[in-house]
Design a protein around this nucleic acid. Structure first.
Lengths: 232, 232
DNA sequence: TTTATTTTATGATATAAATCAGTTTTTAAT
DNA sequence: ATTAAAAACTGATTTATATCATAAAATAAA
């Protein structure tokens, strides 16, 4: 029964107004424009594959995706990424030419691929851009630390409550939403088995904390869930 | 029984030759020199405190420290930091003025405190410096992802093997070393209870994988440990 | 519409690891 | 040198959660 030391939402990197590309000069923007490619990924498709050659920086223009580490039987979802966020920023860094995680689309998603060389050029040229990227990397760090804490220190009920709240607040931004994320993904998101997630959903429902009708979720007792998330 | 998808050492950010300060101009170096403070921390002392106001960037000149999230009863060690590395880089980022984790010294350690304002100025002025920091942040990300995987997907024996190997390879850089890290810290490092760590140490000893005499550890069967770490 | 396949659900059982309650050893303090 | 306190160790017990086996819904495909 600990109080969470971190208030950052653990499932997603908060997407404040973030458009680092506005800081580019006309010239730089043109360079980017020339070298980038927009691609549409369908629901369920793999956008980047762990272990594959990381030739591009991937930016999510619209849609919803999961970033995850692949295991043999279960994956571990590191974060959910919403529109206007990078999907593979950490691949920029020197001496790392493979994707350290996989990304796949939850819904149809529009993605921009930017050549790593061009991206590095921009980082080298434009200090404002570079600083915004630093901020983004740091936001990522805060998010992942929150997640590490959640998964390693909270027990099952707390983790499930955490994810429900995080999805509500940061992804769907309403207390009643259609969860286009499977129970199995919720398991990968909480580090639990899917059976455990389902059982806890049922418990939460019988305790009138949430209402679950198939994929539709409605949060009934926000405060209680928050309590479970913090002390669970 | 999965094969680890990530080969990054999970307990520490690999400390290659890394001295971002060499990229500073004379002028910038002077600015840094004027504003920085060197402080000596004794073994066990707290260097930064989670939740406290983050007024400085902290750089570890010499010594050994742990970066950890505080829980109510158990902490979670995010990483071990060796000399010539930053202890609190993620505090630079805009909109975050508190330390998101605590840092304490394992051995007597020399630390440089750099004003965040000056640090941000340097980031804004010197693009080479800024890029080196980006690299460092990305190395941190790779490390923490490795750790997340280790803690959430491996079971006890694999986690302990992982930590023994990581300490040997990356911290002490020899197969026989004096472990100035308590069993309790090993627990915080593996996400296990200290009793479990002790029992697994004992098992590894009886299986002749390691030799443990109090604080002295010697790795006897490196390959087997690696196997346990990967498939555990 | 029917069939096949995937996802969700449920209860019983197994098990990994925590907790507990001690003892012994080591380290620190007087 | 003696005492106090902290860390390390040990075995017994408990518990949280995974696994297993199987059924019911819900989607997708034919």
């Amino acid at each position: 029964m600990y109080k969470t030391p971190i208030s950052t939402p653990s499932c997603i990197v908060p997407a404040k107004i973030f458009d680092c590309f506005t800081s580019l000069t006309k010239e730089e923007a043109e360079l980017l424009e020339k070298s980038k490619k927009e691609v549409l990924f369908k629901k369920g498709e793999t956008i980047t594959k762990q272990g594959a050659f990381a030739s591009h920086i991937v930016y999510l223009n619209s849609g919803l995706a999961k970033v995850y580490l692949e295991g043999n039987q279960n994956d571990l979802i590191l974060k959910i990424v919403a529109e206007n966020n990078f999907l593979s920023l950490s691949s920029v860094f020197d001496g790392n030419d493979t994707f350290i995680y996989s990304v796949s689309a939850y819904v149809d998603s529009k993605v921009t691929l930017i050549s790593i060389d061009v991206f590095k050029q921009l980082l080298r040229k434009n200090i404002e851009f570079s600083n915004q990227i630093i901020n983004r990397l740091n936001a990522n760090t805060a998010q992942i630390y929150g997640r590490v804490y959640c998964i390693t220190r909270k027990q099952s009920h707390g983790r499930v409550a955490d994810i429900i709240l995080c999805l509500s607040e940061n992804v769907f931004k309403t207390r009643e939403f259609k969860l286009n994320i499977s129970r199995n993904d919720l398991a990968d998101l909480t580090g639990l088995s899917s059976e455990s997630v389902i059982k806890i959903f049922k418990e939460f429902k019988s305790e009138k904390l949430i209402n679950v009708e198939g994929k539709n979720i409605k949060i009934l007792d926000y405060d209680k869930l928050e309590q479970i998330s913090h002390y669970g």
